[in-house]
Amino acid sequence: MSNIVIIGATSAIAERAARRFAERGDALYLVARRADKLAPIAEDLKVRGASQAGTHTMDADDLDAHGAMLDAAVDALGVIDQVLVAYGTLPDQQACEADPASAVAAWHTNAVSPIALVTAIANRLEAQGHGLIAVIGSVAGDRGRASNYVYGSAKAGLAAFLDGLRHRLADTDIDILTIKPGLVDTPMTAEIDKGPLFADAERVGRDIVTAMDKRRAEIYTPGFWRLIMAIIRMVPRPVFHRTKL
């Protein structure tokens, strides 16, 4: 049994992972920006067996709110064993190209905010001496591509940050997991036509829980994305520029 904080608990992927935690009786603390959306999820997780499912409302863009949220989580759980950082937004790439403010906003939610949050969490876990921080990045961070490089670059910045943090904490009992999902059928991708490469949130949630249990450093989910991204990274620039990725 672990005490787990989930930030972005209304994410479809996070909810699937949370069900696994609940089924084994973990104590959960659920953070999201919409209370109305969070309440039924917390109810469900309690029915499925979570020993606790406290909730907290917070807009992750508001960096000043992070500290109070962590205090409340510690009040509810006592010790925080694991944290899953799941929130993110898939911005409209065209809007980001046309309007610098949109690009900055996308970076704020997908990079600046989780970097601020994970910094604060890491310091608390370090003081306590143990813990695990799992963060959902994306395969989109593996190479900048015309179709979504603003989102992709924010996830890339986040991934490099996590690499460095993992390095910093290498001889402690604190583990850092970078999760790189491929294409997942969730509300985030509602507008995108679903092809055979799409995975369901259930599968990705399951992979996340397994990786957290095994204290892995980085996963691609589903696993075949590791190969796809290795190839995409290797494609020489002149060839790459002729593609529409």
């Binding site: 999820i41 109810e43 469900d44």
Partner: peptide, 9 residues
Amino acid sequence: AALDRFIAF
């Protein structure tokens, strides 16, 4: 499909 939450048991 996504409306698959328990409410009480």
